[in-house]
């Protein structure tokens, strides 16, 4: 059993969880929700196992580094952080409907990692620039930030769907959590994500200063992470100081997540120092 096989299973588990969360919402049944929760829990556990096994495998080959060094590994970790964060939200807010909007993102990340022809699941050695203790701190914090924004995105979509048809009584939409709770959840997730994005940018800056001698060089990935930071900073100020809530916040959260996606994927098509993220 190698890590790639375990991680293929994770793709399946998240896909199963996503399907049953949607089924639980559509058919208003608790049984699929329970199955979905177990699939998500098993997915997260195996995801962690696959992550650890891959770490060990890299030592066996003689490269010896945390599996956080390329696109495949980052997608696996992204899916893991979404899984963990979602299970936390489900437990804390006692609602499984959010699962129908959050677990599909984890599934898509895993499916993209496993199926895209441009992404290699081979364990590669670390290039000199990545050989640093900051690697783990930087990537882990960034991805907790990204995944919080991903969950916030899912919840914002729910908000917009719910608010659009709130007048006419529709069973499917009526079963979505209340607008107030969705709005609050978006806000909570954005705050969590903002804290972690900030720590991610900061650890990256400290790392850059020890590797390249400058903590900020306006490299496209740095700049895009800052753009993302500005968008969410706008959201937080608009909400706390101007009293924005609901739809406006949901739209800002969606724009923010688009910036996250560009920081994550789009930047690889631009020239810059972070080019190893594309391999």
């Amino acid at each position: 059993m190698n890590s790639s096989q375990l991680l293929s299973f994770v793709t399946f588990a998240y896909g199963f969880a996503a399907t049953f969360y949607v089924a639980a919402w559509v058919f208003k049944k608790t049984m699929p929700a329970r199955l979905a929760r177990w699939a998500a829990i098993i997915g997260v556990v195996v995801n962690v196992a696959g992550f650890i096994l891959r770490w060990k495998e890299s030592y066996d080959i003689g490269y010896g580094h945390a599996p956080l060094s390329n696109m495949y590994e980052s997608l696996v970790f992204f899916a893991l952080t979404i899984g963990i964060l979602y299970l936390f939200v489900e437990t804390r807010y006692k609602t499984h409907i959010v699962g129908a909007f959050a677990t599909p993102i984890a599934f898509l990340a895993m499916a993209y990692a496993s199926l895209s022809p441009n992404i290699s699941d081979k364990i590669q050695p670390l290039i000199p620039a990545l050989k640093s203790n900051w690697l783990i701190a930087h990537v882990v914090t960034c991805f907790f930030g990204y995944s919080a924004f991903a969950v916030a995105f899912g919840v914002s979509i729910m908000y917009l769907i719910k608010s659009r048809a709130s007048e006419k009584e529709n069973g499917l939409l009526a079963r979505l959590p209340g607008l107030k709770m969705l709005d609050e959840l978006t806000h909570q997730m954005v705050m969590f994500g903002f804290l972690f994005l900030s720590i991610g940018i900061i650890t990256g800056a400290v790392w850059a200063n020890s590797a390249w001698g400058t903590y900020w060089s306006w490299d496209p990935k740095e700049t895009w992470s800052l753009v993302t930071w500005f968008v969410y900073a706008t959201l937080l100020h608009a909400r706390m100081m101007r009293g924005w809530y609901g739809k406006k916040i949901a739209y800002l959260s969606i724009i923010g997540f688009a910036a996250v996606l560009f920081t994550y994927f789009g930047v690889n098509y631009l020239p810059g120092l972070h080019s190893y993220g594309s391999v």
Binding site: W218, W224, V227, T234, A259, G272
Partner: peptide
């Protein structure tokens, strides 16, 4: 309002250099 305007302007203009 100025804060929101400045944050969004910085976000938008920063993109040019990338």
């Amino acid at each position: 309002k100025l804060t929101v305007f400045l944050l969004l302007s910085l976000a938008a203009t920063s993109i040019i250099g990338t």
